[in-house]
């Protein structure tokens, strides 16, 4: 049982995060200290746990979709002597090059306010690292191993599932890890489109010139992204 032992520090950090979320409404002095002009430094318009739940739904939902696209794209890009690779790579790179805030703005007329345009922006932003990780992982499988796998009479699908993907998994997972961190950190902009999340205090704070709100929203968003990164690092080992 090696994994639970390694997981102890992570669980402690997660507990500290949740404790901080719970304590945030009682730490007015802390939030107010850097902003002496702010009258009401404590965020109390919405519960932190509700914001956390909504944030996770948004970012994890987007990562699931981005992972499916990136993995599928990566597999396609490495089939048939990689004929589709330049096209897929360009397409996914283009998707990521659209700033999420612009993607949201452009999607608003089509998808309306809220979670939908945010999800779209996050998926566009997060699928490139999964694609790159998948391609790099599959490229890294030793040619001799593939030659032997085909030579023993495994079909193409079996070679992919039983040999290529398991051997590529660590690299794919590191791509996924980047996608998760990007997605959690970037989901905060969803608040601009009215999607409730840990970014909501940031947007409200910017609108009302309340630096204390921005500080709290920014802190918890970054903290969550780091936690997710640590959790996936643990999984990758």
């Amino acid at each position: 049982m090696r994994l639970p032992r390694r997981a102890v520090p992570l669980l402690a950090q997660a507990a500290a995060f949740l404790l901080a979320l719970w304590a945030a409404p009682h730490l007015g002095a802390l939030w107010g200290a850097p902003f002496p002009d702010v009258q009401r430094p404590v965020w109390d318009q919405r519960g932190w746990f509700a914001l956390l739940g909504a944030h996770l739904m948004l970012s994890v939902g987007a990562v699931v979709i981005a992972a499916a696209l990136g993995l599928g794209g990566g597999i396609l890009a490495t089939r048939g002597q990689g004929r589709l690779r330049p096209l897929l790579d360009a397409l996914f790179a283009l998707a990521q090059s659209v700033p999420p805030i612009a993607a949201i703005a452009l999607a608003l007329p089509l998808l309306g306010f809220g979670a939908a345009p945010t999800m779209l922006a996050l998926v566009l932003y997060a699928c490139l690292p999964v694609l790159r990780g998948t391609v790099a992982g599959l490229d890294g499988v030793a040619p001799a191993v593939l030659d032997a796998a085909r030579g023993t009479g495994m079909g193409a699908a079996r070679v992919l599932w039983q040999v290529e993907l398991p051997l590529a998994a660590p690299v794919i997972l590191s791509g996924l890890r980047v996608a998760v961190v990007l997605s959690i950190a970037t989901a905060a902009v969803g608040a601009m489109a009215g999607a409730e999340c840990l970014g909501t205090p940031i947007v409200v704070g910017l609108a009302n010139n309340n630096g204390a709100y921005v500080l709290q929203g920014g802190l918890f968003t970054a903290w969550l992204a780091l936690l997710a990164d640590r959790a996936l690092a643990l999984l990758a080992r």
Binding site: A142, A144, V145, L146, D147, A148, A149, R150, G151, T152, G153, V163, P166, L167
Partner: peptide
């Protein structure tokens, strides 16, 4: 291929 054994220089054992 199921009926033909195949051995190569770099062996190609499945490392996992």
């Amino acid at each position: 291929r199921h009926g033909i054994g195949y051995v190569i220089q770099s062996v190609g054992l499945f490392p996992h």
